[in-house]
């Protein structure tokens, strides 16, 4: 009785819909980039932007190329990194509420970065400290959660949450001890801020590498989402896969936190939004999350530096302000 036609139709429709969403997201990213490059105290039209990109040396072109472009690219890359890391963590922990920070990576980075700020070190040292702190937290969680080899999502999650809580306490302590003049920059760092970015390349390259590493394993990740043993029974080397996912997701997060600070919300909500729109096939979800996360952070950053200019808002506040209503609206529409 079940004709195969509707099934064929729904399968191609699903794939067509996925392709559509990916193409639209790529276009949106392009528009967001044009918007980011064009807006600011000195407005720049498409002609100026083209001139800037082709090496023009007018005032507007210089501003666009030297100031706005690195910042915009970094914001896009970090949004992508966080969303990709969030999607990976959610599969690794089999928990849709997981985000890139749930395993304490940002906590470690924050503690180390704030210490560097407290010591009055320069921007490069703060970045280096943040990255090392993230790696330290990562190693700590991994080592503790492994214990006697039983590496269940629950145990990993609990270890991560506890390490993150410990880091949170140290962060509060550091903020209490900090002199007023460094307090403001510390708070900005904690909320996430793309203003101090000098180089977008590490984050962009990291994003490309992260996608290149995770996409070949995407179908295996689909199985992992259905359970560790189910995946293993279907021929997936889950121990290696889970370790790889942990490592890649943590490194991506560390890179993002080092570049723009602990921007919240992107990593939790973007994979969720995409899952509502596209289903839970990681082959579509991972690149989709990277694109959508990049768009969200890029637009949020553009707003953050223009909406009440000349005051610059921390971008992490804006991601939440933009993301929360969209997310609630999508959630209230119910499952697809």
């Amino acid at each position: 009785m079940s004709d195969s036609l509707p099934l064929e139709l729904s399968a191609t429709m699903q794939r067509r819909r996925a392709a559509w969403v990916l193409v639209s997201l790529a276009l949106l990213a392009l528009l967001a980039l044009v918007w980011a490059l064009g807006s600011g105290e000195m407005a720049a039209g498409p002609a100026d932007i083209l001139a800037a990109l082709s090496g023009g040396d007018s005032m507007a072109a210089t501003v666009v190329r030297e100031l706005r472009l690195p910042r915009a690219l970094a914001a896009f890359a970090c949004g992508g990194l966080l969303a990709l890391a969030g999607a990976l963590m959610q599969v690794l922990l089999r928990n849709p509420l997981a985000d890139p920070y749930v395993l304490g990576v940002s906590g470690g980075a924050s503690v180390a970065a704030l210490c560097a700020m407290l010591l009055g070190l320069g921007a490069l040292w703060i970045d280096a400290a943040a990255f090392l702190g993230a790696l330290a937290a990562m190693g700590c969680v991994f080592g503790l959660a492994r214990g006697e080899g039983s590496w269940t999502p629950t145990r990993l999650l609990l270890t991560g949450v506890v390490v993150a809580a410990g880091c949170g306490a140290v962060v509060s302590l550091l903020l209490t001890l900090a002199p007023d003049r460094t307090l403001r920059s510390m708070l900005f760092w904690l909320m996430g801020d793309a203003g101090a970015v000098t180089q977008p390349w590490p984050a962009l390259i990291g994003l490309a590498l992260g996608l290149a590493l995770s996409l070949p394993a995407a179908r295996e990740l689909n199985l992992l989402a259905r359970g560790e043993r189910v995946a293993r029974a279907l021929g997936v080397a889950t121990l290696r896969l889970r370790f790889g996912v942990f490592l890649v997701a943590s490194l991506l997060t560390a890179l993002a936190v080092t570049t723009v600070g602990a921007v919240g919300f992107v990593g939790l909500v973007v994979p969720h939004l995409l899952r509502l729109a596209l289903g839970n096939d990681q082959r579509v979800l991972l690149p989709g999350s990277a694109l959508a996360g990049g768009c969200l952070l890029l637009m949020a950053d553009t707003l953050a530096r223009t909406v009440v200019a000349p005051i610059q808002l921390p971008v992490g506040v804006l991601t939440a302000l933009l993301g929360v209503p969209v997310f609630l609206w999508l959630l209230s529409r119910g499952p697809r």
Binding site: S10, E220, L223, G235
Partner: peptide, 20 residues
């Protein structure tokens, strides 16, 4: 006791068996 923390279509859930 299979469990599903994520939403997925029934077809997707069954196609998982084709992985190997």
């Amino acid at each position: 006791n299979p469990d599903d923390p994520f939403a997925a279509s029934v077809l997707e859930a069954v196609l998982v068996g084709r992985h190997p």
